[in-house]
Design a protein around this nucleic acid. Structure first.
Length: 773
DNA sequence: GTGAACACTATTTTT
DNA sequence: TAGTGTTCAC
């Protein structure tokens, strides 16, 4: 096979190892994507494996799309038969097929709203617990597959947990009442489905005899369990990842899972891809020396056969303004000398707020640029409002949609009326829309009856228009935008406030999205639906189907809208400089990278310096940042900068001092000693008071105390120290015997018998102590 | 029910 | 700084 000739030995090993478990540790820039796609091509072409038996799982839609595209180039039409998609999209389709075809998927924004609602319902102390905090605790519980009634048992019985337990239970009730799932539910419910329905699990085990998971270091518990279940029959599982690039622990990703893969499959084959084809020697050495400071990782080191290249430039700017000026000047120089195009250049930062100065400076200089990240397209208010209209038109039982738009645009229906409608709805077992539709029947609603009637008639009129099938999908969305008054409101807002973000533009963009979607999924001739029994399962899981009516297109669109978060196109070829956070730069590469704000308190962030684990994640983030650069790397620190409306004065990041001095060329202020704190003492002490305010605040916060308390509690046994049959003591439950230990990546679910009472506990947080101590 | 004035707070965010 | 949430007078 000639494909193999272009690969190095390790890559070839990975590509040709098809049967049995395989772990590919793919360092940054080691040709990972090529290995994955070639491997699939090898399976299909050389091993005659049917593409229908291959399941490839990624984390983003973009990655899935790219994989499919590259595969099409390699194996042609056969790539179409392969199931390739994100965890969420694949699992959602499985759930729709076997559990409920109609559940709604809510995004994290709606999730927070429902948590807020739940907090109200259970009278949670809103001054002590913030909705966002409750939300992340609930999400964390789901990520550990802990049910509401096990919450305190698993995470402790402190004040906050006791309330969150109730909030969690109520939140799940609300979801159920709305037939909705959040992102975590999609994963958890899939695991449950596999565990409870053996026939279903068996079906998919047989269907997908070959499984691949990309970015395995980013998997969380439910994802891991689902994959293990699927792979347990044929054991042809290949996971690809890099523990050094795990930067999503804060979202539930568990590095331990990739570190433990060899324990899960003792007979697995491990291939390390350490040859880097991306960066110069100096950049790689810097990356290696930074990441070497992490203790919790598999040992590997990137190497290159290329030359050292230029030194890394460390610029010490006087201020945030100076930093921006330096970046602008250097970009101009690079482009003028013909070393780079604008599109070769990226400016990376730890926090979005850091883009401000640079944004301004680039704007004034006339350098073309684009800022990525921040508010995503489908998260924008006006877009979500239009989608809510579409949802309500499609299904008037969608209470969440109703609540969102009942007063958008303003039509004089406020909280009081809505509360009354809710009450009647619960009493009569009717949807909010139905109550509004029949508002004449309820004296409580008499005051706003005319307004409610107007609204429900608007929705019904729109539905009639939809069903008449006289408009194509984009036309219909346009009609809804206009008829609802959303466009009008946005135009008014724009003229009134001169808004920076152009909402009207976004609404237009939605129309072109709609048109694209329709083009891809409209069939002219009426056809039988693809979800018929015995349909092609492989195709089912990635092909969202098609329809021949506008109504049908709308349904497909809504089914997928929550999981489809494209809108920002990273891969357009226009010539501009890219600005983004280090997180969003993962997986990308640039000829020249400016890494700005590499200062203590920012990178690593002030909230990360308290714990070793958080600090290691920051360091991995730094590693990711450095390895984005192919040829030129500029690290910029400022002695003083304005952030969050306050002037702060930070020391250069410890990560800078972890780079061998020989690799750096320091310039700007205090060029002699780059990483050390060269700032004169008086100025330092005068300014630290200011710069430490956020950090101080954080140290006083309940979150910090909770974290600290948790660390204190670690006096108990760790997951790996607990064994079946062991006698243990629990603070509340007393003495018990360990019945079983189920490892769950870094932690373990331990079942303990406390004198006849059986409890499931999370090992690391339960604080179990060996008996006799 | 609305909107203006005020208070608060601020990593990262694949789905 | 800036964006969002809350409060209160109309």
């Amino acid at each position: 096979m000639e494909l193999l000739d272009t690969l190095n030995k390790e890559q070839r090993d990975a590509v040709t190892h098809i049967d049995g478990p395989l772990l590919i540790l793919a360092g940054a820039g080691s040709g990972k994507t090529r290995v994955i796609t070639y491997r699939i091509a090898y399976m299909v072409q050389e091993k005659n494996i049917s593409p229908k038996e291959i399941l490839a799982i990624t984390f983003t839609n973009k990655a899935a799309g790219e994989m499919r595209e590259r595969l099409e180039g390699l194996v042609g039409y056969r790539s179409k038969y392969m199931a390739c998609g994100t965890f969420h999209s694949i699992f959602a389709r499985i759930l729709r097929k076997h559990l409920d075809p109609n559940f709604a998927i809510i995004d994290s924004d709606d999730q927070e709203k429902l948590v807020k609602q739940a907090m109200k319902d259970v009278n949670a102390p809103t001054d002590k617990i913030k909705p966002s905090m409750a939300k992340s605790m609930i999400s964390n519980a789901k990520n550990h597959m802990v049910e509401p009634n096990q919450f305190c048992m698993s995470f402790g019985r402190d004040f906050i947990s006791q309330h969150v337990e109730k909030i969690y239970a109520r939140y799940n009730e609300i979801l159920k009442a709305n037939n909705a799932m959040d992102f975590d539910d999609i994963l958890v419910n899939t695991v449950k489905l596999f565990e409870q329905r053996h026939d279903v699990l068996e079906f998919y085990q047989e269907q997908y005899k070959y499984i691949m998971v990309d970015e395995y270091q980013d998997t969380n518990m439910p994802q891991y369990r689902a994959v293990m279940l699927l792979a347990s029959r044929y054991r042809n599982i290949c996971v690809v990842g890099d523990d050094d690039q795990s930067i999503y622990a804060f979202r539930g990703a568990n590095v331990q899972l990739i570190l433990d893969f060899e324990k899960d499959f003792p007979d697995c084959c491990v291939v390390k891809l350490e040859e880097n084809y991306r960066s110069t020697g100096n950049i790689l050495k810097a990356a290696n020396s930074i990441i070497a400071n992490n203790s919790h990782r598999t040992s590997k080191a990137l190497r290159t056969s290329g030359g050292d290249g230029d030194k890394i430039i460390l610029m010490n700017a006087d201020s945030g303004i100076g930093e921006a000026r330096y970046v602008v000047d250097t970009i101009n120089m690079l482009v003028k000398k013909g070393k780079c195009k604008y599109s070769d250049i990226a400016i990376l930062y730890r926090v979005n707020a850091m883009s401000r100065n640079i944004d301004k400076a680039l704007h004034n200089s006339g350098i073309p640029f684009r800022v990525y990240g921040g508010m995503r397209f489908f998260d924008r208010k006006e877009i979500k409002d239009v989608l809510a209209y579409l949802r309500l038109i499609n299904d008037d039982g969608d209470n969440l949609a109703f609540e969102r738009i009942i007063n958008v645009p303003r039509r004089g229906i406020g909280d009081t009326t809505l509360e009354k409608i809710r009450l009647i709805g619960t009493q009569e077992g009717m949807s909010l829309f139905e109550v509004a539709r029949n508002c004449d029947m309820y004296p409580d609603l008499s005051r706003s009856a005319s307004k409610l009637a107007e609204f429900t008639e608007l929705i019904l009129r729109m539905r009639e228009m939809l069903l008449s099938d006289t408009m194509n999908f984009a036309e219909f969305v346009d009609y809804v935008e206009n008829e609802s008054g959303i466009i009008e409101e946005c135009i008014e807002e724009r003229t009134k406030k001169g808004e920076i973000v152009d909402r009207v533009e976004n609404l237009k963009e939605l129309l072109s999205e709609a048109a694209d979607f329709e083009k891809a999924h409209r069939t002219e001739a009426p056809e039988e639906t693809s979800s018929e029994e015995g349909g092609d399962a492989a195709a089912d899981l990635f092909d969202i189907g098609s329809a021949d009516t506008t109504d049908g297109i709308l349904k497909l669109y809504l089914d997928n809208a929550a999981l489809y978060t494209e809108g920002d196109n990273f891969d357009d070829n226009d010539d501009f400089v890219r600005l983004m956070t280090v997180h969003s730069a993962k997986g990308l590469e640039f000829k020249a990278v400016f890494l700005i704000g590499v200062e203590e308190g920012i990178f690593p962030g002030y909230r990360s310096i308290a714990s070793e684990a958080d600090l290691e994640e920051e360091r991995r983030l730094m590693y990711v940042a450095v390895t984005r650069a192919k040829r030129y790397l500029f690290i910029v620190v400022a002695q003083q900068r304005m952030l969050y409306g306050q002037t702060q004065c930070n020391k250069p990041s410890r990560f800078v001092s972890e780079i061998d001095k020989d690799l750096l060329y320091a310039m700007g202020l205090s060029r002699a000693q780059p990483a050390a704190s060269q700032i004169d003492a008086s100025r330092m002490s005068a300014n630290t008071a200011i710069s430490e305010t956020l950090a101080d605040k954080y140290k006083k916060s309940s979150v910090f105390r909770a974290n600290a308390a948790k660390k204190e509690n670690k006096v108990g046994l760790r997951a790996d120290q607990i064994k079946k049959g062991m006698k243990v003591v629990h603070d509340r439950f007393g003495e018990g015997v360990v019945l079983s230990v189920e490892p769950t990546g870094g932690d373990a679910l331990v079942s303990v018998d406390f004198d006849g009472m059986r409890k499931n506990l999370l090992a690391n947080s339960a604080g179990l102590k060996p008996l006799g101590l």
